[in-house]
Simulated scan of single mutants.
Amino acid sequence: MIRPIFFSDLDDTIFQTARKMTTAPDPAHLASEALNGSHSYMSPSQAAMMDWLLGSTRFIPVTARSTEALERCRVPFTDHQICTNGAVILLPDGTPDSHWLDQTRQQAEAAAGVLNDLLSYVQSRTPPDRYRCWIVEEFGTGFYFCVKSNGVAEELDGIETPLAAIAGDRLLRHRNDNNLSFTPVGISKRHAVQYLSARLLTDSATPVFGMGDSLSDLPFMATCDMLVIPRHSQIDRKILGSGAL
């Protein structure tokens, strides 16, 4: 029997932090540990879904998480893994795809100056302790910039426009809840999924699924045969909940 390929985002798709859950999380469904104690859990239905997907498909995570953050997931991923917003593809043995890494490293190094400019702006032009920001690094290279508010997500409104002006057309901007990120053009989940699909799809009859919660996930999902969208996700709110359908 053909095993479908299932590309899926992680956070707010197959698990979420406890504060986003409508009921108290079951400790048995702990899915990812966080350094700040804000751990992520699966709901009972998500846990059942993952048991089914891991047993019947080639389940491949597609995440903005770094390799270090991905290692803190308790979900037993055994296939390829796409992380760092598509900058890194891990082989089933956990080592990076060197050809892909060489390609994305060149793109990131070309954008290093503007990534550092974003970091400098937040660190020097905003009130201390209002935001936390960093450049996500892998194997000695900075791949994208991320900033979060230490208070409410709406505080990002005050810096999104000036940061976008600094980024210009060299970086792609994405915002979802309390997360604002800028990634060099040419590095994306979509590019990574296309690259990996070309290597894994040896049978044209193999169905390919793409699942994600965020508008930034739609480009990689659009390369798949079927799109899966969690209820109450950003995609749900912006498209399905807008009354457009």
Rank of each mutant, 00 (worst) to 15 (best):
M1N: 03
I2N: 13
R3L: 15
R3W: 14
I14A: 06
P25M: 07
D26C: 04
L30V: 14
A34D: 05
A34T: 03
G37H: 00
G37R: 01
Y41V: 00
S43F: 03
S43R: 03
S43Y: 07
M50P: 10
F59C: 14
P61I: 03
V75F: 00
A87F: 02
P92H: 15
G94K: 07
W100D: 13
L101A: 06
A110V: 13
L119K: 13
Q123Y: 08
R125V: 00
P127M: 00
P128L: 03
Y131K: 04
E137F: 09
E138V: 06
C146D: 02
N150R: 06
E154G: 12
D157F: 11
G158A: 15
I159Y: 00
D169Y: 07
D169R: 11
R175K: 12
N176H: 13
D177E: 15
N178E: 07
T183C: 07
P184G: 00
G186K: 10
R190P: 05
L201E: 13
L201C: 15
T206D: 10
T206E: 09
S214C: 08
L215C: 15
L215G: 13
L218W: 15
L218K: 15
P219S: 11
L227G: 08
I229T: 06
I229D: 04
Q234D: 15
Q234R: 07
G243K: 06
